[in-house]
Design a protein around this nucleic acid. Structure first.
Lengths: 235, 235
DNA sequence: GCGATGCTTCGGTAACGGCCGAAGCGCGGC
DNA sequence: GCCGCGCTTCGGCCGTTACCGAAGCATCGC
C-alpha cells in the first residue's frame, strides 16, 4: 500500500509506451523535433483518428507536449526524461530480440551519429564527451553541473552558446549503441545546435540520423581534439 | 519497415512492464535479490497461478532469470539494463503523477540509501561516487572503464574485491531521487557488497531500503572521505 | 510409500482497449 | 461567404489478455 514509488504509476507510463502505434510515435519524436499529428499517424501506420486518440492520451499523461500552429498541431516529447527512458528501453529491446542480422546502411549511419532527443549521440556524441573530458573541459564526475572554468572559456571562444533554463547544465546519457556516456543536458543541446549551425552535421530527413558533412569531418577533430579514428566502428 | 530499432520491440518490452501486477513484481525485484514465485505473487496481489503466467512471459522475453532450488523457483532481474530502465520509468512516473505529499519515513529512508538492483543508490550512492571522483580514484568521464590506477590501489587496500565478468567495470547510473549519478557496474556491485560485509549498511526487509548502521555512520566517511553533511537532505 | 507444499498448466469468463467509419469543429484559401 | 483541409469526438466492432478455479507435476518431510 504505502509503496515508495507506486508500481501503478510505473505501469501506467510503461503501458503508454507499450503499444506499437504509440511506440512508433514516440520513436519518431526521438528526432527532437515536433511533428504534426498527421505525420505521426503515417509513421505509426494508423488512421488520423486513431493517432489522435493516442496523442490525446499521451498529452494528458504528460508524456507529450503540444504546440498549435494554424490548423496543425505539433507534438513533441515533453521532457528529456522521456527520451532517456526510451533509450533505455531500446537498449533492453536490442538485447532481447535476437536482432536478425540486418545492420543496413541506415543502422550504420545511426551508430555513427544521431540525435538523442535534443543532443548528439552515437560515436560522435561519445567521442565529443570523451575528448572534452580528456582536455579537462568537462568533468562528468561532478554530476549535474560539470563544465570546468576552462571549459566555459573554451566553449565561449568556440561560439557555443549555452541557453538558460531549469534543466541540468550537463548530464551523462548512456548510449544505446556505444554503451558509453555522451553529453546531454543544456550543454549537449548547445553542442548539437552549434554543430548544426556550423554545417558540421545535417539532419537526415525526419529521423534521428545525423549526416556528417565533409566540413564536419575536417573541422570537428580540430575544434574538439577528437582522435583520428573517432568515426571508426569498434567491436 | 526498415526502422532502425524497431518500435515493436520497444513496445513489447514496455508492454511487459506496463501491467500493474508485472510492474509490482519487477519493482520488488529491484532490491537485487532473487525472490520466490509465491512471494512475488503476494507482492503483486494476485493468485500464484496468475503470477506464474506473468513470470513465464517475462522469463521467455529475457527480462527475468530463473534459479531452481528444490521446490522453489527464484526469479531475479535478468540484467542491469532492466534495472536502469525501471529507474528511468520511475523518474518519469514521479514527474507525471502529482505525487501527493506523503514523504513518509519509508520514503525518507529510500532517499538516504537503497539498492538499485545490485549497487547502492540514494544519497549514499551519490556521495560515494562524488567522493571517489573528487579524490581521483574514479573518473566517470572515461565511460565504461573508469577506475584510475590510484583507485585500484585504494580499493585493494580497503579490501574491496571487484569480480570479473562481461559487465562494464564502472558505469554512471542516474539516480531517481537525487538526479545525480552514482556508481553502477561491477565496481558498484563490489562497493555494495563490501559495505554489507563490513556491517556499514544492512538490508531492511525485502525491499530496496538500506539501513545505515552506527558503524557505517562512523566509518564510511573515514574510509571514503565523504563530506560531513553527506547524509543530510538537500532541497 | 503417503500427504503436504510450491509451482505450473488448462479452460472459461469478463473486461479493457485498439481500431476504423462517420460526423463535428476550427482554421485557412479562394 | 463558401469550400477544403487537418484534427478531433463519437459509436460500435473485435481481438487480446488478465484473472481465477480446478487439476496436474514436481519436491520435501514423515
Amino acid at each position: 500500500m504505502s509503496r515508495s514509488a507506486s508500481p501503478n504509476a510505473v505501469a501506467g507510463v510503461a503501458a503508454l509506451i507499450g503499444d506499437p502505434a504509440r511506440a512508433a510515435i514516440l520513436l519518431a519524436l526521438m528526432g527532437g523535433r515536433a511533428l504534426a499529428a498527421g505525420e505521426l499517424a503515417a509513421h505509426a501506420g494508423v488512421t488520423p483518428q486513431t493517432a489522435s486518440g493516442h496523442l490525446a492520451r499521451m498529452l494528458a499523461a504528460g508524456v507529450l507536449a503540444q504546440e498549435k500552429q494554424g490548423r496543425h498541431r505539433y507534438y513533441r516529447l515533453a521532457s528529456a526524461e522521456i527520451a532517456e527512458t526510451l533509450e533505455a528501453l531500446m537498449a533492453v529491446a536490442a538485447r532481447v530480440e535476437p536482432r536478425r542480422r540486418a545492420p543496413g546502411p541506415r543502422d550504420a549511419a545511426l551508430r555513427l551519429a544521431r540525435t538523442c532527443y535534443d543532443h548528439a549521440a552515437g560515436r560522435l556524441g561519445v567521442a565529443l564527451a570523451e575528448a572534452l573530458a580528456a582536455r579537462g573541459y568537462v568533468r562528468l564526475a561532478d554530476g549535474a553541473a560539470a563544465v570546468t572554468e576552462e571549459g566555459q572559456a573554451f566553449l565561449a571562444a568556440l561560439g557555443v552558446e549555452i541557453g538558460a533554463g531549469r534543466r541540468p547544465l550537463c548530464r551523462a546519457c548512456l548510449d544505446w549503441s556505444e554503451r558509453r556516456p555522451h553529453l546531454a543536458g543544456r550543454l549537449g543541446a548547445a553542442l548539437l545546435e552549434h554543430a548544426l549551425a556550423s554545417g558540421w552535421v545535417r539532419r537526415a530527413g525526419e529521423g534521428r540520423a545525423l549526416l556528417l558533412t565533409p566540413a564536419g569531418l575536417r573541422e570537428l577533430p580540430l575544434a574538439f581534439g577528437l582522435p583520428s579514428d573517432w568515426a571508426e566502428e569498434r567491436p
